[in-house]
């Protein structure tokens, strides 16, 4: 076990865990934030996507030791005061079906828009194609990203 410190959703957190523990399990099991989801465990589906220093990262295969001293943002920290424009667009366009992958979709979409405020379809597909949705909500995800881009 190792004592590791990072900033989570604006707050400094110290955790005493095995340093190879994926960030996902530290967030979920140790810090009890369950909005970030387990689905594949191998970085293949993106349900576990969080931001590390502002960049989207799949947390299921990212050892927590790699975020030592860094800043992590999860879905819970995204719209703390009021909903983020991407979250609002998700509601407006009624994106979610089961909702399980949507935190990962939203975190990826937020990172895309921070990088590129007015993405075209190809930009969106390129940024989002690694995030799987078994319910098949992709058409609405794309639409909602355009909606959010307009609103922002």
């Amino acid at each position: 076990m190792t004592l590791l410190t990072f900033t989570l959703n604006g707050k400094k957190q110290s955790v005493d865990v095995a340093p190879d523990t994926p960030l996902l399990w530290v967030i979920r099991d140790t810090l009890k934030l369950t909005g970030t989801k387990y689905s594949c465990g191998k970085g293949l589906c993106g349900s576990c996507t969080v931001h590390v220093d502002g960049k989207p990262r799949k947390s299921c295969n990212l050892p927590v030791s790699k975020v030592e001293g860094k800043t992590v943002l999860t879905i819970e920290g995204l719209g703390k005061r009021s909903l983020h424009p991407v979250q609002k667009a998700w509601i407006e366009d009624e994106v979610a079906q089961c909702g399980y992958c949507q935190p990962g979709q939203i975190m990826t979409a937020v990172a895309l828009l921070e990088d590129n405020a007015h993405p075209n379809d190809a930009d969106i597909e390129d940024a989002m194609k690694g995030i799987l949705c078994r319910c098949g909500t992709y058409q609405r995800i794309k639409k909602a990203i355009h909606t959010a881009a307009k609103e922002a």
Binding site: T34, G35, E76, I91, A96, G99, P103
Partner: peptide, 15 residues
């Protein structure tokens, strides 16, 4: 339950 789904606050079995 749309807001819960975008806030990550709704709980699934895994949660």
């Amino acid at each position: 339950d749309g807001i819960g789904k975008v806030e990550g606050s709704i709980k699934f079995g895994y949660d």
